[in-house]
Amino acid sequence: MTSASQATTPATSPALGQELDIAEAWMKEGREVAVATVVETWGSAPRPVGAHLVIDMDGNFEGSVSGGCVEGAVIADAMDVLHSGEPKMLEFGVADETAWEVGLSCGGRIRVYVERVG
């Protein structure tokens, strides 16, 4: 028996991603893991509420919260969260002063919650 169609998961269902399984696997390997989650979106956002990006202390990551626009900034903040253990709420959007540096070119706005596992 095969499950050839497993790779074709609809992009609209964040629950179908494997990021949380990866986070658990990393945790079992003894790696420090942070989980970033899209908790709110306004306007046109590239990834839906619930989407995950998981990051380890070496900056390895899987998944996405924006499809590439703000991942760099989220990973940098995840490093702080991994060190301090304190969760952070991040907000990105074109309204930001830093729109040209880290923003959503699609014009939307998102809130991303970053927390450490454990």
């Binding site: 949380l20 986070a23 658990e24 945790m27 709420m89 919650y113 927390e115 450490r116 596992v117 454990g118």
Partner: peptide, 29 residues
């Protein structure tokens, strides 16, 4: 995120059971 909750959530997801991870934002619990 509580590691035990991550495991419990993944067990539910992989067993095709619906599950919600409920996070209280202020405490992070």
């Amino acid at each position: 995120m509580d590691p035990a909750n991550l495991k419990k959530l993944n067990a539910a997801r992989n067993g095709r059971r619906a599950a919600i991870l409920l996070t209280e934002m202020e405490s992070g619990r």
